[in-house]
Write a protein that binds this DNA or RNA. Structure first.
Lengths: 95, 95
DNA sequence: GTAAACTAGTTTATTTTATAAACCAAATAC
DNA sequence: GTATTTGGTTTATAAAATAAACTAGTTTAC
């Protein structure tokens, strides 16, 4: 079979966008990711939780002044998963 | 927002594989597509129906000898949709 | 100072999707 | 003839995405 399976965790528009953002920066906070992806907070919360559970990102919750702040970072595992997802996906895209 | 929406009809592993196959050949029949994509007949039947309803592919049912044969072709609309899907998706893939 | 609105999320419910299982009609194999 | 295979479709179930509702606290406007 020429079409390799695509990691279902990454084959989701929002989760892929989150990973795409995080792969190109050291870390990003919840609000920033929400703005960049144009997602709702609820949806983002769920998808971040999934990526975190899978070990693709790490999530840290702190306070900045009196406001809560959720900061996300991609993990080594996440980088690997993203890279092989992209590699597999390329098969589908080139004619 | 930097991440453009990905056509949900194409952002599905099996439907994308079907479109990927069809974009590089004049036509392909059901059995061939099932083999190449490694999908089950039931799943493929459903996804072909969706692509057909969307006007992304055309489906022709004939008989070869006494056996039924379902032949699929990508439409102009389908080519356009696939190309813009790939274009939008690239944003997510490059760091 | 207190009511209204806003921030930063989480949780729960609903809708949609993907997948699997069951089925059907005809053909071929035994 | 009946068992199996072929080429599918239909229906049921599982999983996912999304939206709506809610929480907990903060800031702003009177």
């Amino acid at each position: 079979m020429q079409y390799k399976a695509l990691d279902p965790l990454l084959h989701s528009q929002l989760r892929l966008a989150v990973m795409s953002l995080l792969i190109s920066m050291e870390s990003a906070d919840f609000v920033y990711i929400r703005e960049q992806t144009g997602s709702t907070a609820g949806n983002l919360s769920v998808q971040i939780e999934k990526l975190s559970t899978a070990g693709y990102i790490s999530v840290e919750k702190t306070f900045v002044g009196k406001k809560p702040k959720t900061t996300c970072k991609i993990t080594n595992k996440g980088v690997g998963a993203f890279e092989s997802y992209v590699k597999n996906l390329q098969q589908y895209l080139k004619p």
